[in-house]
Amino acid sequence: MFRFVLGRLTMAIPTLVLVAITVFVLIRLIPGDPAALMLGDASDAQGLAALRERFGLDRSIPEQFAIWVSLLFQGDLGRSIATGHEVLPSIIDRFLVSLRIVVPAIVLGTLVAVPLGMFAAWKQNGLRDVTLVSCATLLLSIPTFWMGMLLLLLFGLHLRWVPIVGYADFSEDPKRAFVYLVLPVLTLFLHELGVILRMARASTLEVLSLDYITHARAKGLPEHVVMWKHAFRNAFGPTWTLLGLILGNLLAGVAVIETVFTIPGLGRLLVDAIFARDYPVIQGCLLFIAAIYILVNLMVDLLYPFFDPRIAAR
């Protein structure tokens, strides 16, 4: 087990370094003086000189990278051109907002889709299986932003059950904050439901075709014992991996949902920064989301042996 954890950690570190290099290079691909780009229209000779000194922009590229990484370790991602605020605290604030949509949607999606996927596999090719798979395919063919708009039309404008758009902080008004999050979470939940259900069904079908399941059935075990005690843990492994990928993808992809419901999340911060050509924020968001993605997948890998102990043993 120790070797397994060590192996996964040593795989994640080079990936993080390569991602940092890519983000560093990407921003330096933009033609022009990086200091002028980072200061924007407000740049003056004194400000430019100070920034060049701070980031070592007058030195060689490897030296610049070393300075950038050392500042990174101190949590210094620079300041936003548009707002003047420090980049890292802004990113963390917005990240927490995005998490309030993404995490409940994934948790609810998993709780509903995994049993449904297993049920569909259990009833393979029956009417209930075909109905569930058709619904799942339909759900994942609907783009989240359109789904969000349709839900807004129905529940916000037509039925008037929830406010149309907006955002409130839980610390200020928990009830309002909850109500504002209902539709965005529902939108993501419905989309992820389709994705997770199909994966849960496919992996359950794979497991149900294995000899040990045939053996369990031949012993006369009741079907619910076969499904939950013998099939579930093995079948959940691939779905568990998928959840890590979904979480990471959503941190970048949630921008469309945040746009529909005007929620000030991390995705929206990145898109607004691209519009404003706010390069320190763009660089910070790219690095932060990619790092979270790698870390989440590392956690997923490390927890995988809980569902399939063979992985750690290999």
Partner: peptide
């Protein structure tokens, strides 16, 4: 490295450039 970026993130970064 390309696979280490989730979904549209790399595309967004590249579009910014």
């Amino acid at each position: 490295v390309l696979l280490a970026f989730p979904g549209l993130l790399f595309a967004l970064g590249l579009l910014a450039v």
